[in-house]
Measured scan of single mutants.
Amino acid sequence: KNAAKIVNEALNQGITLFVSDNKLKYKTNRDSIPSELLEEWKQHKQELIDFLTQLES
C-alpha cells in the first residue's frame, strides 16, 4: 500500500493524519483506532511523514 491510499482509508474512517514536529499524528472523533490501522501506520511511518509533509508544503 502506498501513503496516499493509507491516508485516504484513514479519512474514510473519520481519521485525519498529519505531521507535527516531524512526528505522525492523528485527529479523530472516534473512541478508538483499530489496531490494524495503527500497525499499518507504524509500518509505513516514514513514507506517511514524507507524503504528508510534501502535501503541506
Results as ranks from 00 to 15, higher is better:
residue 1 K to N: 11
residue 1 K to F: 12
residue 1 K to S: 11
residue 1 K to G: 11
residue 1 K to L: 12
residue 1 K to I: 09
residue 2 N to Y: 09
residue 2 N to V: 12
residue 2 N to M: 11
residue 2 N to L: 12
residue 2 N to S: 15
residue 3 A to C: 11
residue 3 A to Y: 04
residue 3 A to K: 01
residue 4 A to Q: 12
residue 4 A to P: 06
residue 4 A to S: 09
residue 5 K to W: 12
residue 5 K to R: 15
residue 5 K to Q: 15
residue 5 K to D: 15
residue 5 K to L: 14
residue 6 I to D: 01
residue 6 I to V: 04
residue 6 I to C: 03
residue 6 I to H: 02
residue 6 I to R: 03
residue 7 V to D: 00
residue 7 V to H: 05
residue 7 V to Y: 15
residue 7 V to N: 03
residue 8 N to Y: 14
residue 8 N to W: 14
residue 8 N to V: 11
residue 8 N to A: 15
residue 9 E to M: 07
residue 9 E to S: 06
residue 10 A to S: 04
residue 10 A to E: 00
residue 10 A to F: 03
residue 11 L to M: 10
residue 11 L to H: 09
residue 12 N to Q: 14
residue 12 N to Y: 09
residue 12 N to M: 15
residue 13 Q to T: 04
residue 13 Q to C: 11
residue 13 Q to F: 12
residue 13 Q to P: 00
residue 13 Q to D: 04
residue 14 G to V: 01
residue 14 G to C: 07
residue 14 G to N: 05
residue 14 G to M: 04
residue 14 G to P: 00
residue 14 G to R: 04
residue 15 I to D: 01
residue 15 I to Y: 09
residue 15 I to N: 01
residue 15 I to L: 03
residue 15 I to K: 01
residue 16 T to E: 14
residue 16 T to N: 07
residue 16 T to M: 11
residue 16 T to Y: 15
residue 16 T to F: 15
residue 16 T to I: 15
residue 16 T to D: 05
residue 16 T to R: 09
residue 17 L to M: 04
residue 17 L to T: 00
residue 17 L to S: 01
residue 17 L to N: 01
residue 17 L to I: 06
residue 18 F to G: 04
residue 18 F to Y: 15
residue 18 F to V: 06
residue 18 F to A: 04
residue 18 F to I: 07
residue 18 F to D: 02
residue 19 V to Q: 03
residue 19 V to I: 08
residue 19 V to A: 05
residue 19 V to H: 02
residue 19 V to R: 02
residue 19 V to T: 05
residue 19 V to Y: 05
residue 19 V to L: 07
residue 20 S to Q: 15
residue 20 S to F: 10
residue 20 S to G: 07
residue 20 S to T: 12
residue 20 S to W: 09
residue 21 D to S: 05
residue 21 D to F: 05
residue 21 D to V: 04
residue 21 D to N: 08
residue 21 D to C: 11
residue 22 N to V: 03
residue 22 N to L: 06
residue 22 N to M: 09
residue 23 K to Q: 14
residue 23 K to N: 11
residue 23 K to V: 12
residue 23 K to R: 08
residue 23 K to M: 13
residue 23 K to D: 15
residue 24 L to E: 00
residue 24 L to G: 00
residue 24 L to K: 00
residue 24 L to N: 00
residue 24 L to H: 00
residue 24 L to S: 00
residue 24 L to W: 01
residue 25 K to G: 09
residue 26 Y to E: 01
residue 26 Y to N: 02
residue 26 Y to W: 15
residue 26 Y to K: 01
residue 26 Y to M: 05
residue 27 K to N: 08
residue 27 K to L: 09
residue 27 K to D: 06
residue 27 K to A: 10
residue 27 K to I: 12
residue 27 K to R: 13
residue 27 K to V: 11
residue 27 K to H: 11
residue 27 K to E: 09
residue 28 T to M: 04
residue 28 T to I: 03
residue 28 T to N: 04
residue 28 T to H: 06
residue 28 T to V: 03
residue 29 N to F: 10
residue 29 N to M: 11
residue 29 N to L: 11
residue 29 N to Q: 10
residue 30 R to I: 07
residue 30 R to D: 05
residue 30 R to C: 08
residue 30 R to L: 14
residue 30 R to T: 06
residue 30 R to H: 07
residue 30 R to Q: 07
residue 30 R to Y: 05
residue 31 D to A: 13
residue 31 D to E: 12
residue 31 D to G: 11
residue 31 D to K: 12
residue 32 S to V: 09
residue 32 S to E: 11
residue 32 S to G: 07
residue 32 S to L: 07
residue 33 I to S: 02
residue 33 I to R: 01
residue 33 I to Y: 03
residue 33 I to G: 02
residue 33 I to V: 11
residue 34 P to Q: 04
residue 34 P to H: 04
residue 34 P to R: 04
residue 34 P to L: 03
residue 34 P to I: 03
residue 34 P to K: 04
residue 34 P to D: 05
residue 35 S to R: 11
residue 35 S to H: 13
residue 35 S to N: 12
residue 35 S to Q: 14
residue 35 S to A: 14
residue 36 E to Q: 13
residue 36 E to I: 08
residue 36 E to T: 11
residue 36 E to Y: 14
residue 36 E to P: 06
residue 36 E to S: 10
residue 37 L to D: 02
residue 37 L to Q: 04
residue 37 L to V: 05
residue 37 L to I: 06
residue 37 L to N: 03
residue 37 L to H: 03
residue 38 L to Q: 06
residue 38 L to D: 03
residue 39 E to Q: 09
residue 39 E to K: 08
residue 39 E to V: 07
residue 39 E to N: 09
residue 40 E to R: 08
residue 40 E to D: 10
residue 41 W to N: 00
residue 41 W to L: 08
residue 41 W to M: 08
residue 41 W to G: 01
residue 41 W to Y: 04
residue 41 W to H: 02
residue 41 W to Q: 00
residue 41 W to D: 00
residue 41 W to P: 00
residue 41 W to V: 05
residue 42 K to A: 14
residue 42 K to C: 15
residue 42 K to L: 15
residue 42 K to D: 13
residue 42 K to H: 12
residue 43 Q to I: 12
residue 43 Q to E: 12
residue 43 Q to K: 13
residue 43 Q to P: 02
residue 44 H to R: 07
residue 44 H to G: 02
residue 45 K to G: 08
residue 45 K to R: 13
residue 45 K to I: 15
residue 45 K to H: 14
residue 45 K to N: 14
residue 45 K to C: 14
residue 46 Q to V: 08
residue 46 Q to D: 12
residue 46 Q to N: 07
residue 46 Q to T: 09
residue 46 Q to A: 11
residue 46 Q to H: 07
residue 47 E to G: 05
residue 47 E to R: 05
residue 47 E to H: 05
residue 47 E to Y: 04
residue 48 L to F: 01
residue 48 L to V: 05
residue 48 L to C: 00
residue 48 L to I: 14
residue 48 L to Q: 00
residue 49 I to N: 01
residue 49 I to T: 03
residue 49 I to V: 07
residue 49 I to K: 04
residue 49 I to P: 00
residue 50 D to Y: 10
residue 50 D to E: 14
residue 50 D to H: 09
residue 50 D to W: 11
residue 51 F to E: 02
residue 51 F to Q: 02
residue 51 F to Y: 15
residue 51 F to P: 00
residue 52 L to F: 05
residue 52 L to D: 00
residue 52 L to H: 00
residue 52 L to S: 00
residue 53 T to G: 07
residue 53 T to H: 07
residue 53 T to A: 06
residue 54 Q to A: 14
residue 54 Q to M: 13
residue 54 Q to T: 09
residue 54 Q to G: 12
residue 54 Q to S: 14
residue 55 L to S: 12
residue 55 L to M: 14
residue 55 L to E: 10
residue 56 E to C: 10
residue 56 E to N: 13
residue 56 E to D: 12
residue 56 E to Q: 15
residue 56 E to F: 07
residue 56 E to W: 07
residue 57 S to I: 14
residue 57 S to R: 14
residue 57 S to C: 11
residue 57 S to G: 13
